[in-house]
Design a binder for these strands. Structure first.
Lengths: 329, 329
DNA sequence: TTGTAAGCGTTATCAG
DNA sequence: CTGATAACGCTTACAA
C-alpha cells in the first residue's frame, strides 16, 4: 500500500481505488487516528485552509459579530479562521496581512474602516495587490479603496434614514455625536445626517459634536451638551455604544428620555435591544459570512480580479428611546 | 549565493555569515519583498507559528476579552492566532482541536467551561493528551480536568465574596440566578453563594432560580421573581449580563435599585461599568495573555508535561446597584 | 564562511 | 487499479 493510495482515499480524490484497498486504508487511518498534515497539504495546494480576518478590536461587539460570521462559514467549509487585532493602525494591518500571506491564507478580510487621507493607505493597497497576485482573495467590509471586492452597507444612507425618522418625530434641533476623527465611516455618517437635515430644511438645527465610538465618548458628549443649554430635541450618535453612553448621562442627570429628548444610535448591537434603543440595524453577521463565502467559493477557481462593491441593506429599528416631540420649542 | 545562506540570515540563525554576504541577502530580500513561507518553515519546525483559541462564542464579551489577551501576546511573539467558536459543544471542541492539530499549532487554549458529567469529556481528554504527545501545548482557562495546565479563577470564592458583600449590607433573603444548567462554572458559583449564605446563618434566605448566561435569562428570572412576592433583599446573578437583564426588568417594573433591592453580577465586563453594577472583577485578559505566554515560552523547550493549576485572583467591585438594606423585613 | 543535499508530509504525474 | 517519484519551500546537518 503506497502513500499515494492512502492519499487518494483520504483526500477524496476521484482517482479510482478498489473498494477493498479503500477499506483497508480507511481502517488503518481510523486505528492510527491518523489525519493528514494540513501544513504539508498546504505546501502543494494553491492555498492553505486558512481564512484571515483583520479587526480593529475583537472586544468591540461590532467586530465580534463580523468575526462570528466569518468563522461560521469558514468552519463549515473546512477552513480555520485566523484573527488579528489591528487597533485601527494601518501599519499593523499591513503587518498582519503579511503574516497571513506567509501562511498562504485562502483570503483575508479587512473588517475595519479606514481613515480619510491616510498616508499609509497606498502601502496597504500595494500590499493587498501583491497578495492578490499570489492568489490570496481580499475582501473589504468598509468603504475604502483597497482594490479588492467590498461588501458593506451605505453608512450615509443609514444615518440619513434615522435622521429622517427623528425629523418625522418633529425634532428640529438635533445633535449628532460624531465617531472618531478622520475615519471614513465617521465622515459618511455625518454626511448622511447633515444631508437629511438639509433636505428637511433643518440645516440650522443640525449640530455636530465630537465623540468617538465608545460609551465614554457618548457619555462625555452628552455631559457637554447639557452644559450648554438648551438641550437639543434629539441626539443621534455615531453608533450604539455612544448612544448608550449619552443615554446614560442624560438619565443620570434626571432628563427624561424620550420624554424630553430622543436618543438614537446606529448598528443595532445586542446592547441596543437591551436598552430599547432606536437604531438602524446593519447586517454585520452577513457581511462577515458573505465575505468568507466569497473566499471559500472562489478559492478553487480563478480570482475574479474584480473590486466590485456589494452594498447590503440596513433597516430602521424603532424602540423606546425616541418619541414624538410634544413639548415647547 | 545559496538558498542555505539566505535562510541563515533571514531566519536569524547563529550560523556565521560574512557581513558582506548578509548585506547582499538582506538587500535582495528587501528588493524582492521576499518573506519566507511560514508553511514550509513549519514543515521543518517542531510547530507552526499558530496559536489556537477555542471559545464558546466570540460575540460573548467574556471570550472576546480572553481572545484579545491571547492575540496580543501571540502577535508580539511573532505568532498568528487561530480562533474557533465551539458553542459549548464538546464534540465541536474535539473537532476544532483536531483541525488546529492538523496545522501543528504551537498550542491551543480552551477558554470555555465544561459540563459536569459530560459523556464526551473523556474523548476530549484523550484528544488533548494525543495533541500534547505531538508537542502541542494545551491550556485550559476553566476548572475542568483536561489533563493540561489550567489558568483560572476561583469561581466559588468569587461568588462567596460577593455574597458576603451582600450580606454585609444587611441583606438576608438573597436570590441567586444560576448559569446554564450543568456547566461546571454554574455549579461552582452556586456553591460559593450557598456556602456564604450558610456560613452567615442565612441558609433559609438563600434562593436559587434557574437562569443562563445572557441578558434575556436575567430579565426572565427577575420577572419570575417579581411574580412571586415578596421580593428578595438582593439578587446575585451568575454573571454581569444576567445581572443587567435582571436590573432592567426590575427597573422597568418600577422597582428602585438599589433602594428596594440590590443587584450584583460576576465578571466585571464593560457593561458592568456602564450600568454601575456591583460585581467581582475577573482577570480575563490576563488569563488569555498568560495562557498564550505559556505556549510561546515553552514552545522552544520541552513541555513541562504538567497539569498544574494557576489560580488568578479576583476583586470585589462595589458600584451603585447595591446598597445597605434600610427598609422593612 | 559558503555550498550541497536530505528531509518534512502531501498531492499529482506518469508508469506499470 | 496501484505504485514510485517529483515537487512544494524551508532548515539543518555535513562537506568543502
Amino acid at each position: 500500500m503506497a502513500v499515494a493510495t492512502a492519499s487518494r482515499v483520504l483526500s477524496g480524490s476521484d482517482h479510482p481505488v478498489s473498494a477493498r484497498t479503500r477499506a483497508k486504508v480507511l481502517a488503518a487511518a481510523a486505528k492510527l487516528e491518523y489525519s493528514p498534515s494540513a501544513l504539508a497539504r498546504a505546501m502543494v495546494s494553491p492555498h492553505s485552509g486558512l481564512v484571515g480576518v483583520l479587526v480593529s478590536d475583537i472586544v468591540n461587539p461590532y467586530f465580534a459579530v463580523i468575526a462570528r460570521g466569518v468563522d461560521d462559514v469558514a468552519t463549515r467549509a473546512g477552513y480555520v479562521t485566523m484573527l488579528s487585532n489591528v487597533d485601527r493602525r494601518t501599519d499593523t494591518e499591513i503587518g498582519r496581512l503579511r503574516a497571513m500571506r506567509d501562511y498562504r491564507a485562502a483570503g483575508v478580510i479587512f473588517a475595519g474602516s479606514g481613515y480619510v487621507d491616510d498616508p499609509r493607505t497606498p502601502d496597504l493597497v500595494k500590499a493587498v495587490s501583491r497578495a492578490r497576485e499570489e492568489g490570496i482573495r481580499a475582501v473589504s467590509l468598509a468603504d475604502r479603496d483597497l482594490g479588492c471586492p467590498t461588501i458593506t452597507v451605505d453608512n450615509r444612507a443609514a444615518a440619513h434614514d434615522i435622521t429622517d425618522h427623528l425629523v418625522s418625530l418633529c425634532h428640529r434641533r438635533i445633535a449628532f455625536i460624531e465617531g472618531p476623527p478622520g475615519m471614513t465611516v465617521t465622515q459618511h455618517r455625518r454626511d448622511g445626517f447633515l444631508a437629511a437635515m438639509s433636505t428637511a430644511g433643518l440645516a440650522e438645527g443640525a449640530h455636530c459634536v465630537p465623540g468617538g465610538f465608545d460609551f465614554e465618548a457618548g457619555h462625555a458628549a452628552a455631559v457637554r451638551l447639557m452644559a450648554r443649554p438648551p438641550l437639543p430635541d434629539a441626539v443621534l450618535a455615531a453608533n450604539d455604544e455612544v448612544a448608550v453612553g449619552a443615554l446614560s448621562a442624560l438619565r443620570q442627570a434626571g432628563i427624561d428620555v424620550p420624554g424630553e429628548i430622543s436618543v438614537a444610535g446606529i448598528n443595532d448591537l445586542r446592547v441596543a435591544q437591551h436598552v430599547g434603543l432606536t437604531t438602524v440595524s446593519l447586517p454585520l453577521y452577513e457581511m462577515g459570512s458573505m465575505a468568507a463565502r466569497h473566499i471559500v467559493e472562489s478559492a478553487q477557481g480563478e480570482d475574479a480580479g474584480d473590486s466590485a462593491t456589494t452594498t447590503l441593506s440596513h433597516r430602521l429599528i424603532t424602540r423606546e428611546t425616541t418619541a414624538r416631540r410634544t413639548s415647547t420649542a
